[in-house]
Nucleic acid binder design. Structure first.
Lengths: 195, 195
DNA sequence: GATATCGCTTAACTTAGGTTAATTCCTTTC
DNA sequence: GAAAGGAATTAACCTAAGTTAAGCGATATC
């Protein structure tokens, strides 16, 4: 398939957000990843120094503790830029993996080469600034929720924030997102039913 | 005092980080905040849409829950850019306040006007990108530590990460940083002493 | 169509950490 | 130097959530 056809969805994404970015200046080959439900784009511990664009689908960021417990850091629905900023920028091992929860299509470029070419475009820099601001703000809000609210409240907040996920993904994944065990979530749901 | 003299420390900060940014293009007046120990630069709930530069001193980001419990999100030593990205970018109320833990000097510019002028400078955009990347990565690591480690481990990590703070700030502030009560921290320290 | 397998629930028990309060120790302040 | 307030410790008690395990539907596999 032609490069421009493949990158169409990314170009559209930029345009929709109001950023006048021309991808055709890139001399880099884009890579296409087709993920089935359950597949990992990359695993925790991999060096994932790519710029990833989730064209369609749904993924979760999942990190595993030394004791083997899974924790879901976030859910992301396409179209959206995804990936580990840390791994991308510092070429270090990612502290989480990205797993598809549905059939998903992901485009990627090696970050360093991509940034070297795109940084010439002030519009791209401004897009990237806005992207970082956005993901930072959402992390700020999540941290605050974790510190300030109980697990029960975090569950209720989740249901409001992701109404479409509430009934489509597994409860254990919701539990790992709000930072408790599936058993504890089941108890909370039981208690809420009674109210 | 002259504008250029006031902004000297910020100019030096940019230069040290290797960013060729010329502040003298700014037609904006800089504001200087002189904080005593305990003073707030801004409080949670204020709209703090300024670009703040902590020239010298030490601050903490502190948020308070509905029940009145304090939580310290981070400690920052000058020289460093500080502030609430969310409040700055979206002109919304800050979800935390910034409190000086020592005598501190802070410079500030209103963000919108500052960004409008500085965005013309690609070097500034790249500095701002690097700044966002850095604070994002540190948030990513903190989130991970919170999910993966016990309070005891988080205390030990704190001692390694902030050796100079360990003995200079109050234990209740350390406790609020690692997300437990002062009583619980005291218990942990007691237990560690026995080992 | 029988049988694993997986996700969820429920129960019983354990544990980390919260709550309250008393005690001591240190600073301030007058 | 006495008094008062704040910080840390310690103890007793409580609660939310973790752990383990049994049971129960679903769905998938042969």
């Amino acid at each position: 398939m032609e490069q421009t056809q493949l990158t169409n969805s990314l170009q559209t994404y930029f345009n929709r957000l109001g950023h006048d970015i021309d991808l055709s200046i890139l001399t880099l080959p884009v890579e296409v990843h087709s993920l089935s439900k359950g597949d990992y784009l990359f695993q925790q511990g991999d060096v994932a120094s790519n710029f990833y664009f989730l064209s369609t689908g749904l993924v979760r960021y999942v990190s595993v503790s030394d004791e083997g417990k899974e924790f879901t850091q976030s859910f992301v629905k396409g179209p959206s830029v995804i990936g580990s900023t840390k791994s991308m920028v510092t070429k270090s091992k990612a502290s989480f993996g990205i797993q598809a929860l549905e059939e998903s299509i992901v485009l990627s470029y090696p970050w360093t080469a991509f940034y070297e070419q795109m940084r010439e475009d002030k519009n791209f820099l401004e897009f990237y600034v806005k992207l970082l601001e956005r993901i930072f703000i959402s992390k700020e809000e999540r941290e605050s929720a974790f510190m300030k609210h109980s697990a029960e409240r975090r569950y209720l907040d989740f249901c409001v924030a992701f109404p479409e996920l509430k009934d489509t993904i597994q409860q254990q994944q919701i539990a790992s997102y709000i930072g408790i065990t599936p058993v504890a979530l089941s108890r909370i749901r039981q208690k809420l039913k009674l109210c």
